[in-house]
């Protein structure tokens, strides 16, 4: 068992102004006992990765609806590597076509949740993947 609550950054990148999905996830993870750091809209990859480092996050969940996922997700993977922080579990959600999901996973995104994914699946994923990291 982890000796502390898991810490997860929930971020919203890009230029679309819809953060309803991100807020729903943030609340669900909180209700599952996690400490959720919410950063608000329009974050750049650098901002998201710096946040995760300073907050000592176990995971980053990124919500994208704008269609810019094929650029933004890989940029964050790259940033995490550059900062030596690729042990932080990076996952995402949004309206992402199946082919892109495959490509993004190959690029280092641990999981992609598309609309309709049960919240419990996301919670279970974060507990399993980030929990591994937090166990001491």
């Amino acid at each position: 068992m982890a000796d502390r609550p898991l810490r997860v950054v929930v971020a919203k990148a890009g230029l679309d102004g819809h953060d309803r999905g991100a807020k729903v996830i943030a609340r669900a993870l909180r209700d599952a006992g996690m400490e959720v750091i919410y950063t608000g809209l329009f974050q750049t990859p650098e901002q998201i990765v710096q946040t995760a480092i300073q907050e000592d996050a176990d995971g980053i969940g990124l919500s994208i609806l704008s269609g810019a996922h094929m650029t933004l997700f890989p940029l964050i993977v790259e940033q995490l590597k550059a900062q030596g922080a690729d042990d932080i579990v990076f996952f995402g959600g949004g309206t992402i076509p199946p082919d892109d999901v495959v490509a993004l996973k190959a690029a280092g995104v641990k999981a992609i949740f598309t609309p309709g994914a049960p919240l419990q699946d996301i919670i279970d994923f974060v507990n399993a993947e980030c929990g591994k990291k937090a166990r001491t």
């Binding site: 993870l29 959720v36 750091i37 919410y38 950063t39 946040t51």
Partner: peptide, 8 residues
Amino acid sequence: GALLGDRI
């Protein structure tokens, strides 16, 4: 759990 939103 907690929702930490001051960073906004």
